[in-house]
């Protein structure tokens, strides 16, 4: 009799613990609030201490502007330094900081199909006018098979555009 009671209380306790954990997990997995803005200003890509060719920085910047404009989630995409940008009240600034870069080799990729991959990782940081961080995520772009090394910037820009799509 005693063991039955003990067993019942243990089951009840386990049930309560499971319910509590379940609610906590569901609270964590709840979709974050979307960021509302009418414009994103794309800032120059910060290479930080990573050794990276200026060609990749320029290509990443241009691909970011193109992909975010194509995305259409945010109506206006401004370039850094644009005279119209400071007048926008709800302006969000996007700053990409390079964290890792591997140039790879197009020739190696085509000859071996397994070696020579290009990889570029950045921290994509979205801040408001006051400098408050609204969203910060690590984003990585790759080229594994076809295309030149610069295509890594296109892949990365597409991922940033996807991030904007999910959070704005």
């Amino acid at each position: 009799m005693k063991t039955t009671k003990k067993l019942t209380s243990t089951i009840v306790l386990l049930f309560v613990v499971a319910m509590t954990m379940g609610s906590a997990v569901s609270a964590q997995s709840a979709k974050p609030e979307k960021i509302k803005t009418s414009a994103i200003e794309v800032m120059k890509v910060d290479p930080s201490d990573v050794k990276i060719s200026p060609a990749f920085l320029a290509a990443l910047y241009e691909n970011l502007v193109t992909e975010l404009s194509k995305n259409g989630k945010v109506s206006r995409i401004e370039r850094e330094g644009d005279k119209d940008a400071p007048g926008i009240k709800d302006l969000v600034k996007l700053q990409c900081i390079v964290t890792a870069f591997k140039e790879g080799s197009e020739r190696q990729r085509q000859v071996t199909t397994v070696a020579g991959a290009s990889k570029l990782s950045v921290i994509a940081r979205f801040t408001d006018n006051s400098g408050k961080v609204l969203l910060e995520k690590d984003v990585t772009g790759n080229v594994r098979f076809f295309g030149g090394n610069l295509k890594v910037t296109f892949d990365l820009a597409k991922h940033v555009a996807k991030l904007v799509n999910e959070n704005f």
């Binding site: 200026p54 290509a59 370039r79 644009d82």
Partner: peptide
């Protein structure tokens, strides 16, 4: 790396 007439930054290769 250049600026357009509106001051916007561009990179070209």
């Amino acid at each position: 790396n250049y600026r357009d007439a509106n001051g916007g930054f561009h990179g070209s290769i």
